[in-house]
């Protein structure tokens, strides 16, 4: 089945892309890899008259580090991010979570900016970006601004982008020294599915073995990806004993506000959050967490 016809605008500068977005606002959609938008076009969920493609803006695909900060251009592909040595060595949590997205061919085309802008609650990269305290760089008619990723997801498939704005990059600060981190994805169907729940965590331990830093990001736990703040508070200042980890997992399950859908009910999701937060924290603590291959 063909896509409904549209006009394709292919700007070659960011300024032209913003001008096109301003001129066509309301009737145009941005497209990068197309892995989220093309199925929506095919199903008729969106019927734009025009698409503005970002694929002729190679500067937006750049992956680089500046003074210890990782900068991912908005159209950097998930495949390039998971392979980039700087990411694997400096931000292994991100490499691990990105590697779990769908299947290899989807990651060849799918982009980090597209993943953020789609604002899927069951996103693999989002919980990792939340834990890594990433910052979303946005350009628009009023110039550029930064949005912490913790404030980027505003509601069910809703972001903080204003009309005429687009994401140009994601900036990720250096990971705290000695941090332990990991991502687990639970899918009751096939491994390449989106997560029923996804859990990312990053902790640092002080010299007495207590959690100095504790960050937990959850996918599939609410209408948007979220940080599990109450669970983090349970961990901070405490050694990650079995009892503390269990209490943190319980707090995460309680603060989650999951939705029911065809993949699973809200109650089932809540239970799985309890299980997977606990398992991940225990495995990180014991040094037994391994970046899982994309197969359960």
């Amino acid at each position: 089945m063909r896509l409904r016809p549209f006009e394709l605008v292919e700007p070659e500068t960011l300024a032209d892309a913003l001008a096109a977005l301003a001129r066509l606002d309301g009737e145009a959609r941005l497209i990068a890899g197309g892995t989220a938008l093309v199925p929506m076009l095919r199903l008729g969920l969106v019927k734009p008259e025009r698409l503005i493609s970002l694929h002729r803006l190679p500067a937006l695909a750049e992956i680089r580090t500046d003074d210890g900060t990782l900068r991912l251009g908005a159209i950097a592909t998930l495949a390039d991010i998971e392979r980039a040595r700087a990411v694997r060595e400096g931000w292994p949590l991100l490499a691990e979570a990105v590697h779990r997205v769908a299947s290899p061919a989807i990651r060849t085309s799918g982009t980090i900016g597209g993943n953020l802008c789609y604002a899927e609650a069951a996103s693999d990269p989002a919980p990792a970006l939340l834990c890594l305290e990433a910052e979303v760089r946005v350009a628009g008619p009023a110039g550029e601004r930064s949005v912490p990723v913790t404030g980027f997801f505003r509601g069910f498939y809703e972001t903080a982008l204003e009309p005429g704005e687009l994401v140009t990059a994601v900036r990720i600060p250096a990971v705290p020294a000695g941090a332990l981190s990991g991502y687990v994805k639970f899918t009751p169907r096939s491994a390449e599915d989106k997560p029923l729940v996804g859990v990312a965590a990053l902790i640092t331990l002080d010299t007495a073995g207590r959690c100095a830093e504790a960050r937990i990001g959850l996918a599939g736990a609410a209408p948007t990806p979220i940080r599990a703040h109450r669970a983090e508070m349970v961990l901070r200042g405490e050694a990650p004993s079995d009892t503390t980890v269990r209490a943190a997992a319980e707090a995460a399950a309680r603060e989650a506000e999951p939705l029911s859908d065809l993949m699973g009910s809200a109650d089932y999701r809540r239970e799985m959050i309890r299980v997977w937060v606990r398992r991940l924290l225990v495995a990180m603590r014991d040094g037994t967490h391994r970046a899982e291959p994309n197969q359960d």
């Binding site: 197309g34 093309v38 199925p39 495949a79 061919a105």
Partner: peptide
């Protein structure tokens, strides 16, 4: 690299 021909615009 593998791509999905059904998802990628010809352009």
């Amino acid at each position: 690299r593998p791509i999905r021909a059904c998802l990628v615009l010809a352009a």
